[in-house]
Structure formats: C-alpha cells, structure tokens
Amino acid sequence: MARAKKKAGEINSSSMADISFLLLIFFLVTTTMDVDTGMKRTLPPWIDPTEQQNDVDVNERNVLKVNVARNGSIMVGTEVYRANDLNRSAGHSRLSREVYNFLVDADKSNKKDVEIDGAMYPISEGLVSLKADNESKYSVYLQVQDELTYAFNLYRDDISRLVYGVGYNELDDIQQANIRKAVPMKISEAEPNDQTKK
C-alpha cells in the first residue's frame, strides 16, 4: 500500500481462483468413486472332451442338486422353489435355509480333517451342484448364487464360533483362511451337457 518504490507490478492472481474452480468442477464431474464389487468364484480347469474323464467320487448324500429352469422356477433336490423363495425375510430365504440345513447335515459323514491350532476339525463335505437352463435369466441365476453363498457364509460363521468363539467376520486373515479350509465353498457350476454342446 505504501511502498516506497514500485517495481514491476505483481501478476494479478485474482483469476487463479476462477481457474482452479474450473479445474475443480471438471474433476468433480469426471470422478467416479465406485469400487468394483462382485461375487468371486473359481472355475474348474478345462478338461478336453476327448480326454478320459475321471470324475471325482462324491457321496450322493453330500450333494445338493439345484436346477434353475428357464421359467425361473428352481428345483432344489426334489422340491420346486419359486422366485419369492429367494427373497429374504427375517434374514433368511427359503432357499438359503434349506442349503444351510443341508450343509449342517452333510457334515456328519466325512473322514478328512483340517488342523486348526493343534486341534482337528472335520472338513465340510457339502457340495452344491448348480445347473441352469441356457435360457434362464442371469439375474435369477445370480440370486441363487447369492443365496448359496449366504448359506455357506452362515455355516462358516457357525464353525468359526465353534473354533474361535467369535463370528467369521471378526477373525483375522489367517483364521479366516483356516475356516475357509474347514468349510470350502463347494458350488459346482455344472457344464452344459445338453443340446448346445460347445
């Protein structure tokens, strides 16, 4: 204000705010904060159809067959489920409760064990064989997958409480891996063995 000598005038920086505002608005608009979420699965390795197939021997008793038909109805074992049997009320859907009960029952007849902290625990033998008609809708298929996952997670939670005394989500990574070993998520996504042979 009261400088003695005025040399080269300073650059007017009042437009700086405007420029940065412009940039800010640009980044505000272009930013997408979404994180990728999804349901993880592992596919079985490819087996050449010409090769001799040696199917893994599983006890029929430990396999629950789930079939998704093209009209959206679902066969679970010998029973027919409708779309609303997938909807949850009070935390469970009819399907997830059924699969959970199956997992609890299937556990009894096995021989293999996994060692967790020096103690032996049986490995869950329950296997869900999921088949879907080629014309069935993906949204139904994924909803079925969702309920199956939920049933497995419920059972993992049970085993976790049995082994560690707390729920599965409160365990650290190593403990969770142990529980996953004891309760592997055995969902077999069967290949299409019907009309459209690929």
Partner: peptide, 22 residues
C-alpha cells in the same frame, strides 16, 4: 441368459483364467 454366460465361462476355462467374479 445363462447360456451365453456359460459359453464365456467355457472359453475362460480354456484360457486357464479360472478366477472369475460376477
């Protein structure tokens, strides 16, 4: 439809990309 998805999954198996996520 699930049929299309199955076809893609079969290709992924052939390519040995076995970890997938829906």
């Amino acid at each position: 439809t699930v049929g299309k998805l199955t076809a893609v999954k079969q290709e992924l198996r052939k390519a040995n990309a076995l970890s997938i996520s829906y």
